[in-house]
């Protein structure tokens, strides 16, 4: 059953803490070479899932295959081949940045040179700083460097850009894309929908330990957030009737000379522009309003509210 083109396969994964089913029958698979994201409210079970995949927590049920290995039994061999950035962890206060990289590199059969990694993460000038003296974002970068120090086939990044400034966040996206371009697989969690949308090939939405949706960001947005809106300014005497008959158009509204066409589908905008063109209708200031992944997230996990974590 294990397929070489799948980096991860999870079937009916279950993890309970006492009476709480933190992960409650989760199924998904991750293709090799993919950037795969998990989003969900606080306490949804993202960290629990990721740590089961890393072999750091023992699932209570289900089947797991990570790089063809069973994290329950082959944890050590697995950790040789994966990179791990934990949501919560630390290094000894007095350990210096270069010592941490030198130490972690020595744990692996085939480590990557770590000096360029420090430069890429822009903490090269902090080589001699002690862990306790680093800022939150610098610690985060160090942990990402440690996750990449063995040039892993599969990297797990649990909230990789939490605590990073917007520049660093974008630099991190480039870094992640670079990792993928070298043929590696990335599994990440995030609370930033923009990040999931920009970075991920596919996104798993979880809530209360269950899968709510799994698809590419574009598909999730199209399927779940509903309508695309097209707005333009038409010349006087514009007749909305022909537009209403177009495929995918749900409604057309006029407000003075502003026209709003709402509907569904990737092709909606082409269809509308072609129709306007074909009829010789002049328009200007055309723009589209598309829902983003944040709307999807809010719609899918709406009922939970602030106490979503407390069940």
């Amino acid at each position: 059953m294990p397929s070489p083109s799948l980096a991860i396969e999870a079937r009916s994964l279950v993890k309970t803490y006492g009476r709480l089913r933190a992960v409650d029958g989760v199924d998904f698979s991750v293709r090799a070479g993919e950037i795969f994201g998990v989003v969900g409210p606080n306490g949804a079970g993202k960290t629990t899932t990721i740590e089961c995949l890393e072999g750091l927590r023992m699932p209570d049920g289900g089947e797991l295959r990570v790089l063809g290995l069973d994290p329950r039994r082959d944890g050590r061999e697995l950790r040789e081949r994966i990179g791990v950035q934990l949501q919560q962890s630390a290094l000894p206060d007095d350990m210096k940045v270069w010592e941490a990289l030198d130490l972690f590199a020595s744990y692996y059969r085939d480590p990557a040179p770590w000096a360029p990694l420090l430069d890429r993460l822009e903490i090269g000038d902090k080589r001699n700083a002690r862990f306790a003296k680093l800022s939150g974002g610098q610690k985060q970068r160090l942990f990402i460097a440690l996750a990449l120090v063995n040039d892993p086939e599969l990297v797990f990044l649990d909230e990789l850009t939490t605590g990073l400034d917007p520049h660093a966040r974008r630099a991190m996206w480039d870094l992640v894309r670079g990792v993928r371009e070298r043929g590696k697989t990335v599994f990440l969690t995030t609370h930033y929908m923009e990040e999931a949308e920009q970075l991920c090939d596919r996104v798993l939405v979880v809530d209360h330990g269950r899968v709510v949706a799994l698809d590419s960001p574009a598909n999730l947005i199209r399927d779940l957030a509903g309508e695309v809106r097209i707005l333009f300014t038409a010349e006087a005497g514009f007749d909305p009737a022909p537009l209403r008959a177009l495929e995918g158009v749900a409604r057309v509204e006029r407000n003075g000379d502003r026209v709003l066409v709402a509907g569904r589908g990737d092709r909606l905008i082409c269809v509308v522009i072609n129709a306007l063109d074909a009829r010789g209708i002049r328009f200007r200031d055309l723009r589209t309003e598309q829902p983003d992944l944040e709307d999807v997230f809010l719609a899918l996990t709406a009922e939970a509210g602030l106490d979503g974590g407390a069940r």
Binding site: L56, R76, E77, R79, V84, L86, S89, A90, F104, F143
Partner: peptide, 14 residues
């Protein structure tokens, strides 16, 4: 308490 053991344990070190 700090999570150092967690981080060490996420490596192939026994």
């Amino acid at each position: 308490e700090k999570g150092v053991l967690r981080r060490y344990r996420a490596t192939p070190l026994r």
